[in-house]
Amino acid sequence: METLARIEITALSVWFRESGLAFFGSLTLHSLAMALVVGINLAIAFRLLGIVPSFALKPLIRFYQMHWIAVILIFLSGLALLLAYPAKALTNPVFYAKFAMLSAGLMIASKLQNLIRTRPENELNSKTVKLIALASIIVWVGTITTGRFLAYTNSVLLASRFF
């Protein structure tokens, strides 16, 4: 807790917390990038599960370029939000659940991207690929849910109040 309190009093942490634009900008960027990443992954998963009629999968690779740029934005904005309120997030188990879900989602995204790039189209209709796509949907819904619950489940807001 003492370490978290020390982080909180650094100039950068104070700036992210108290500058309206820095905090709001990070929050908005996080939401926009998250919507894009989750949206693209859900669309690809729906296609792989056959929920939407088949269209060529290989050209979807181009959407992944945009996806990975958005992932970088998620991490940068997430880092800024974490720096603003480190104790609020790091003392909350839901934060770790979100992080685990997000990491799993990105690993699945990377796996699917690799499959789409390397396998012929007809092999992408296999049961294994469908299971991976289903796992992708579950994990992304979990990421969103834990992300929203994060704002309501914290027990500590500022660690520095304890010192």
Binding site: S31, M34, A35, L36, V38, G39, I40, N41, L42, A43, F46, W140, V141, I144, G147, R148
Partner: peptide, 10 residues
């Protein structure tokens, strides 16, 4: 937010 992701994703 899930609805919004579906909207953006589709």
């Amino acid at each position: 937010f899930l609805g919004l992701c579906l909207l953006i994703g589709c």
